[in-house]
Amino acid sequence: MSEIRFTKDHEWIHVDGGIGTVGITDYAQSQLGDVVFVELPEAGRNVTQGGEAAVVESVKAASEVYSPVAGTVVESNGALADKPGLINEEPEAGAWMFKLRLADPGQLASLMDRAAYETYLSTL
């Protein structure tokens, strides 16, 4: 199973074999502006669905990144520490933020698929 889902807070999650990869959407990065710093969760940390997992900062704003689903963090993207601007360049690919082992894959059902997210964006 491989699928991508979105939250109303503009996170995306891509799930593959029980492991979810999480980042922020292109829309989110465009609202933030140049990202200058990212604070990522350490491996082993348990996060809840909708709970604070990471922080992204631009020059004039700081924004929490919420975990789309509950789980245990298995890895975070070390490349972002040296190159936070990657989030502006490829938010939905190379600039993934952390991976987690899903506690309850059923939670994915509460998230939007791409079409629904795009519809949601058009209402903002």
């Binding site: 710093f37 900062e57 631009s58 020059v59 004039k60 704003a61 700081a62």
Partner: peptide, 12 residues
């Protein structure tokens, strides 16, 4: 590094 400060982070 003003994202540490009150005018951006407010209660945090």
């Amino acid at each position: 590094l003003s994202t540490r400060e009150q005018h951006i982070r407010r209660e945090k």
